[in-house]
Design a protein around this nucleic acid. Structure first.
Length: 309
DNA sequence: AAGTCGTGGGA
DNA sequence: TTCCCAAGACT
């Protein structure tokens, strides 16, 4: 079974949410910023941060000129701070190696930090109107149901998922809108829990035709958070974000008293990830704290900015 | 290639 | 309260 792209396009034209990164004057870089932020993070939490972010750092070079510490602070508690670091690294690479312009080629985009199979195609499609399959968790679910008649998408398979969606793409200029619509359908109607089949625009759905069979009952093991290294890392970063000056070890130790080995492991992993740095006197700070600008890409002398202070 | 990486809102 | 999970990427 297939999906009628015209139905999706028509539905999207009136049902699309008015998200800030869908505005007419949003640049490719700003769309890319939204994609970084939306990786594993709900729209409602991204929107306010994105608005502040693009007003402060509207271009790759502006972002690249910021310190990693300032980027991590602006990211705040959006989740997965490694994404913020990769966004910063991505900005530096685009500013230095791509003329401060977001590449429009999927293969080139894939070489940039933090950009994977989904984000590369999302940028090519949403920022440059290319007819490329865009496969995220929403699209995989819609295809699993409407095309394959299954309650849930199976394990991700890059080549198979891309082929599935490529086969659905209309062979005309509506392809990018169709891709946006397919994602939107999964995000707002064909949702993981309690899908709103009553208002679904699709006239034909294999899952409905089959009588809405339930999932196979072998869900992936749910990821805990409480008590994990991630929680400890989050607390350590909380302390570092709040302080512009480096903090002593004892100031970090108090955030996790129950398991000192775990606390040490978490702090070490933050150092390994390059999110935290240790000063010469042994204190700890957000990476790049105090930098006026990012390091020069070719290892040259650091370029000081010329702002008064 | 299964595990890891944050966080908070809704069911 | 607990559990699920939200526009993934990387190793």
């Amino acid at each position: 079974m297939t999906i009628d792209s015209a139905e999706v396009v028509a539905w999207y034209s009136h049902a699309r949410r008015d998200l800030p990164w869908r505005g007419p004057d949003v640049t490719a870089w700003q769309i890319l910023v939204s994609e970084f932020m939306l990786q594993q993070t709900p729209v409602a939490r991204v929107a306010p941060i994105w608005l502040e972010w693009v007003a402060r750092w509207p271009t790759p070079s502006a972002t690249a000129a910021a310190s990693a510490a300032d980027v991590l602070r602006a990211w705040g508690k959006l989740g997965y701070p490694r994404r913020a670091k990769r966004l910063h690294e991505c900005a530096i690479a685009i500013a230095a190696e791509h003329g401060d312009r977001v590449p429009d080629d999927v293969e080139v985009l894939l070489t940039l930090p933090g950009i994977g199979a989904y984000t590369a195609r999302a940028v090519a499609c949403f920022a440059y109107q290319q007819s490329v399959p865009v496969v995220d968790t929403n699209v995989r679910r819609v295809v699993a149901r409407a095309v394959h008649g299954l309650a849930d998408a199976g394990n991700p398979s890059a080549t198979r998922d891309l082929a599935d969606v490529a086969a659905l793409l209309p062979n005309d200029a509506t392809a990018p809108v169709f891709s946006a619509g397919l994602m939107e359908l999964g995000a707002t109607v064909c949702t993981a829990r309690s899908p709103k089949c009553g208002i679904c625009p699709l006239r034909v759905c294999a899952w409905r035709a089959a009588g809405y069979p339930p999932g196979t009952g072998a869900p992936r093991p749910t990821q805990r958070y409480a008590g994990t290294d991630r929680q400890v890392r989050g607390r350590l970063l909380d302390v570092l974000r709040a302080s512009s000056a480096p903090v002593v070890r004892e100031h970090l130790d108090v955030v996790w008293l129950t398991d000192t080995a775990q606390r040490d492991r978490a702090l070490d992993s933050l150092l390994v990830d390059g999110l935290v740095e240790q000063t010469a006197d042994g204190r700890f700070a957000l990476a790049g704290e105090g930098d006026d600008a990012a390091p020069a890409p070719q290892g040259g002398a650091k370029q000081k900015t010329d702002e008064g202070g």
